[in-house]
Design a protein around this nucleic acid. Structure first.
Lengths: 341, 341
DNA sequence: TAACGTACCGAAAAGCATTTCGGTATTTTC
DNA sequence: GAAAATACCGAAATGCTTTTCGGTACGTTA
């Protein structure tokens, strides 16, 4: 691979190279390139030709230094592996990418020291704002007061003075149960994941909200353990042994729901005719490949990412908001609650 | 939220603020902070105290401008959603994060225009290098000659003068079949995904390599369609109807393998006693939640990302390599090929 | 023709940190 | 006590772009 710059010197061309080649001053070259109107058309043409020939691209570093804004944002995640982080990241990148903003990605791997290290690096690079994306909806430690706006996404900050955006898990739990009720179910159970997660507790609150509003009660106790397919299978077996009358199951995740579907199939229960099942997260690859396909609650994470991006922007100009915003969730109906045709 | 800088003016402190407060020149302040030794201990202390008091952090923009290197790298992906991109991204971020390098993340969403746009932005920001991560192992269009080193990860460039790093799918296919053979299987079939993918074709080549080396032939034709669990179920049903003697199945993906396991279970075949099944990708959430757990081929994508990062670095100093490097894959053995205990 | 206006261009400062090199002040040595 | 060496500090250049403001040169008007 050979470098093919036309400056000859091997450097990338600078504005003064362009000016020299075009036979004008640096100031004039700048104006010509940036479309300012104090330049004669013929001069502008000469400059643009020179810029083209040298493959000139303006140095953003110099620009940013002057402007006091870099057009960059730091995206500080605690765990890239987690599948909740990615859609948020996509949404943010998307919202920024449409403008002139670029994103610095930093993965702290759940380590506070590393996070502090990354934070410092971002501030040194003079990012215009920071989005902190957590992997759980449990509150996380605030970064404290920084010279740039900070928005917490998914995992809210534990400081109410910070601005946080997190999905409305309680509304999601309620939405799920309301859907089952609207499908004519009244003997509804709840199988969820790790009760140490706020997500699990909040969804249960929503489920109870929905049941209470309809004058119903949960069948058996809410079942908690871990967020796995195995647990879904085991829990469903236990549930059906103790409460064979159950006709609807709200699951805490799609993985759990997949396990539940497996057990129901093994036990000869038809889904959704005998038992309707609803998952949570709308993890497409799981939800659309099960038998039957899985109705689920979608947290609109990509939208959440876009909202976070927008807030960082508006915080740049306007006043800063604070407190926790709950993003709405939505129901995605598939065959596990409503028979196909 | 209140800003609490001590410059008073609301700006972030600059080196000259520190110098003024410490009663020294800017040059001396710089030396004191950067640990140069031409500074008297007492002076250094004064400067450091002033820097502390003002919460001074050196402006990387100014530094980069001077140094000619920014300590940033562009990560240009075509599809963040794809689950192959994330581990590579993590590996790269990890490798860089250990140094002083930060990553600009750009998602082109599979759109060439957007990619060009992002590329230009990265060059304007004077990144020191670029990693291009594709979502398939099929060759992709080269970005052409750029003033910074470029490494293509996962999807190799179609220009042999570029440096590409991609997983060795052929070796993976061979590894899978060799494992089945070592498990005593000799009537082996292959169910894979979309034949338009180089990954599918390369893996089949590897499967044939392994069979031929053992003097065996594939049972039936290799079966191609799409990368889905549904197809895995359907294909397995067809396969067993035509070739009930099959005792080993190499699957083109873990999703397909999950479908295959489902069908085998429905048909009363024991896994691995009657039929051994091996997947591909080692997608943990699928592989460890199936019944039985799924043996699979892991492409070491995180390692691939780290290698790509390293190559960008070395290309900065050393000569540039070119051509396509094939990263080794590895076998992860679970219950679908070897009975537990 | 003199005075004025317009159109265009260029010098220079600003943004911030680093580094070189020249210059004091202090210490050491003869 | 004078010369040399040392230790420490500061002015200024560097990197690159943008913007302001002062200055030509030309054309226009009275």
């Amino acid at each position: 691979m050979v470098r093919t710059e036309s400056t000859g010197s091997g450097r990338t061309a600078t504005l003064s190279d362009v000016a020299r080649l075009a036979g004008v001053s640096i100031a004039t070259a700048s104006k010509a390139i940036n479309g300012r109107d104090e330049v004669a058309p013929a001069t502008r043409r000469r400059v643009l030709e020179a810029a083209e020939q040298l493959a000139f691209t303006p140095n953003q570093l110099a620009r940013s230094l002057l402007a006091g804004r870099t057009g960059t944002v730091g995206l500080l995640t605690s765990d890239l592996e987690g599948r909740f982080v990615i859609p948020i990241l996509m949404g943010a990148e998307d919202a920024f990418g449409a403008g002139q903003v670029n994103v610095f990605l930093c993965d702290a791997r759940g380590d506070a020291i590393r996070e502090q290290h990354h934070l410092k690096a971002l501030l040194n690079r003079r990012v215009d704002g920071i989005i902190v994306v957590g992997r759980q909806t449990d509150p996380r430690p605030s970064l404290g007061t920084l010279p740039v706006p900070v928005v917490y996404a998914y995992a809210p900050s534990d400081d109410p003075d910070d601005l946080s955006i997190t999905p409305d898990n309680r509304a999601g739990g309620r939405l799920a149960v309301e859907h089952l009720i609207s499908c004519g179910r009244s003997r509804i159970a709840h199988i969820s994941g790790d009760p140490a997660y706020a997500a699990a507790r909040d969804r249960l609150l929503g489920v109870r909200d929905g049941l209470q509003a309809a004058g119903l009660e949960l069948v058996g106790d809410a079942m908690f353990s871990v967020w796995s397919e195995h647990w879904g299978r085991d829990a469903a077996a236990m549930l059906l042994a103790q409460h064979p009358e159950v006709d609807g199951i709200v699951c805490g995740s799609d993985q759990i729901a997949r396990g539940v579907l497996d057990t129901l199939r093994d036990l000869g229960r038809r889904v959704p005719e005998d038992v309707a099942v609803i998952g949570y997260d709308n993890w497409e690859v799981l939800a659309t490949n099960s038998r039957p396909e899985l109705t689920s609650i979608d947290a609109n994470l990509q939208q959440l990412g876009r909202t976070a991006a927008k807030r960082v922007f508006t915080a740049l100009d306007d006043e800063r908001r604070s407190g926790t915003e709950y993003e709405p969730v939505r129901l995605v109906i598939r065959g596990s609650t409503i028979p196909r045709r």
